[in-house]
Computed example of a mutant assay.
Amino acid sequence: MSPRGELVAVKRIHPRLVLSNAGFGFASIMKTLSLAQHPHIVPIIGFSQALGERIIVMEFVGSVILDFYLHENADGASLLDWNRRLRIAAGVARGIEDLHEGVAWHQI
């Protein structure tokens, strides 16, 4: 929960990944990404970094991950048909495209 009582999602980056990418500018990337406003991008509320530690705090958007809908069903059938899967993939692609355009614009 945030200080205002909002439910948030916390992502802790595995220490091995932190150490192997120690000099990649985590703080500046997180600051830039936190400015992103797009319907297919989960807003970043904040982040924290310390020696060997990186944490990202984001808006909470649901309690079931996409992997569940793609692979987890008791009778073996997928919960998402291919049409919905393609729409999700297209939305992800639009979000990534907007991020790339926005990040490139911020760096000019």
Score class of each variant (00 low, 15 high):
40 H>V: 08
3 P>Y: 08
11 K>C: 09
2 S>H: 11
20 S>I: 09
51 L>W: 11
104 A>M: 11
75 D>P: 01
76 G>C: 13
22 A>S: 14
62 G>P: 01
66 L>Q: 07
95 G>I: 04
74 A>G: 05
64 V>G: 06
83 N>K: 03
79 L>D: 13
67 D>V: 03
86 L>D: 09
47 F>Y: 15
25 G>F: 03
10 V>W: 06
47 F>M: 02
34 S>Q: 07
10 V>H: 06
10 V>S: 05
6 E>N: 13
46 G>E: 03
63 S>H: 13
86 L>Q: 06
23 G>T: 12
91 G>I: 01
49 Q>V: 12
63 S>T: 08
61 V>A: 14
4 R>T: 15
41 I>T: 06
45 I>S: 02
82 W>C: 10
98 D>E: 09
77 A>N: 12
12 R>S: 10
37 Q>I: 11
71 H>W: 00
42 V>E: 01
6 E>A: 11
47 F>Q: 00
84 R>Q: 13
27 A>M: 10
22 A>N: 09
1 M>I: 12
54 R>S: 03
29 I>F: 12
107 Q>A: 15
20 S>D: 12
87 R>N: 14
83 N>A: 09
80 L>R: 00
93 A>K: 00
65 I>C: 15
91 G>A: 04
94 R>K: 13
71 H>N: 11
71 H>E: 09
33 L>Y: 02
22 A>F: 12
14 H>N: 12
93 A>I: 08
35 L>F: 11
59 E>C: 05
66 L>G: 08
69 Y>F: 15
25 G>E: 06
8 V>N: 10
10 V>A: 07
46 G>K: 05
39 P>K: 05
17 L>M: 13
57 V>H: 04
44 I>E: 02
80 L>A: 10
81 D>G: 13
13 I>R: 01
94 R>P: 03
69 Y>V: 02
9 A>D: 01
104 A>Q: 10
90 A>T: 14
72 E>W: 00
65 I>H: 10
70 L>Y: 02
96 I>G: 00
14 H>P: 02
92 V>T: 14
65 I>S: 13
100 H>D: 08
7 L>W: 07
20 S>A: 13
63 S>N: 14
73 N>Q: 13
62 G>C: 06
70 L>K: 00
36 A>C: 15
14 H>R: 15
92 V>R: 00
46 G>C: 06
28 S>Q: 11
68 F>L: 04
76 G>W: 02
9 A>E: 01
105 W>K: 11
57 V>N: 02
17 L>T: 08
12 R>D: 08
7 L>H: 07
70 L>F: 02
3 P>A: 04
100 H>S: 03
108 I>C: 10
83 N>Q: 10
94 R>A: 10
